[in-house]
Design a protein around this nucleic acid. Structure first.
Lengths: 187, 187
DNA sequence: TCCTTGGTAGAACGATTGGTCTACTCATGG
DNA sequence: CCATGAGTAGACCAATCGTTCTACCAAGGA
């Protein structure tokens, strides 16, 4: 019975697509995905209806994981909203420094997929609003006078750090963003 | 003599590619480019050696124009380094608000072109270092105690504003970035 | 005058794309 | 026992990709 350890084709496809679509952009060939997942062609179309469906689902899964990760980082930092928010920025350079880091998945998807009604865009919009809400909630708890505006600012810092990290990871943009975040939290 | 008003095929190709490659990403088909430029197939390969060459040249041209534009904005703002730098951020929302705005060209190119040795990457690196140097020079003139670090910060704000603007232009990220820039210039 | 040069128009190339289809395997449950 | 459903393997399809090629044309200089 040592056989069925291996996840089903659906899971293997998601894992392979998550990796390859990030590493090689949205232009990964279907063949490459199938080969990496070691899955029959037919499984892709049965489970996801096509390449676009798979890519959208991958983005959905990533978004859930990323939000979950952010929540975990927040919670690991204790109760103080200030410390919790700064922990998010401390985590940035860790994320950016990872071997295959190539910038923000969701921005990359938005830029690469020109068709305005591609399902991926909706996922990206949703992810951003969730992250924004996470920030805002902490700022409210912190008693910040303008939590909405401050959340916009922190959000912009995160996007800026990820964008900068995509091309100049050596510049330690996480640290830079954190320094600016400290200024925002003081107000 | 009213004939030769029309620019040559090289210029028409560059113009068409600048527009289309921004609007539809790096995946524009060669056929679409030729049709838009109203140019013979052969001209593309004679002038640029192929699609990649054309795309790289477009990026080079864009970089030169963008740096030139930044310089013009700086100079139009007078002598005060503080005012000059803030003018750059005032200009951001103007850029972002333009009809077809889709984020930073160079970041999009970096994310879309997975091959690490594509000529476009070198152009993007060069563009960023030029912009960074522009910022740093003004900060030096301003007498900022840490011009290099501050340039990193301003640069990150610009990237963040462009990234945010690509998907949430209504949030006026230029204004947000400007507010944060003011804080940096005070130090 | 001829002949080079730079352009157009478009057929054709092989490779690759995303997607469909058929045939076979194999475990499971009635 | 065998019927069903999920999965595999791979041929196949039309479309599109970037590229190369031939054939023709028009202006300019020797």
């Amino acid at each position: 019975m040592a056989a069925t350890n291996r996840p089903g084709p659906r899971e293997r496809l998601l894992a392979a697509a998550q990796q390859l679509s990030y590493a090689h952009g949205a232009n990964v060939g279907v063949d490459a995905l199938l080969k990496e997942a070691d899955v029959a062609r037919r499984s892709l179309y049965e489970h996801f209806g096509g390449k676009d469906g798979l890519l959208a689902e991958v983005l959905r899964q990533s978004a859930a994981q990323d939000i979950e990760h952010a929540r975990a980082v927040l919670d690991a930092a204790g109760r103080s909203p200030r410390r919790r928010l700064l922990a998010l920025f401390d985590d940035l350079d860790h994320v950016i420094g990872q071997p295959g880091f190539r910038g923000c998945r969701y921005l990359a998807a938005d830029l690469a997929l020109a068709e305005r009604d591609h399902p991926a865009h909706a996922v990206a919009v949703d992810y951003r609003s969730q992250l924004h809400e996470l920030l805002r909630a902490e700022l409210v708890r912190l008693g910040h006078p303008h939590p909405m505006r401050a959340a916009d600012e922190l959000h912009l810092l995160i996007e800026g750090a990820l964008a900068t990290g995509a091309t100049r990871a050596d510049a330690r943009p996480g640290r830079t963003a954190r320094a600016l975040a400290v200024g925002i939290l003081k107000m």
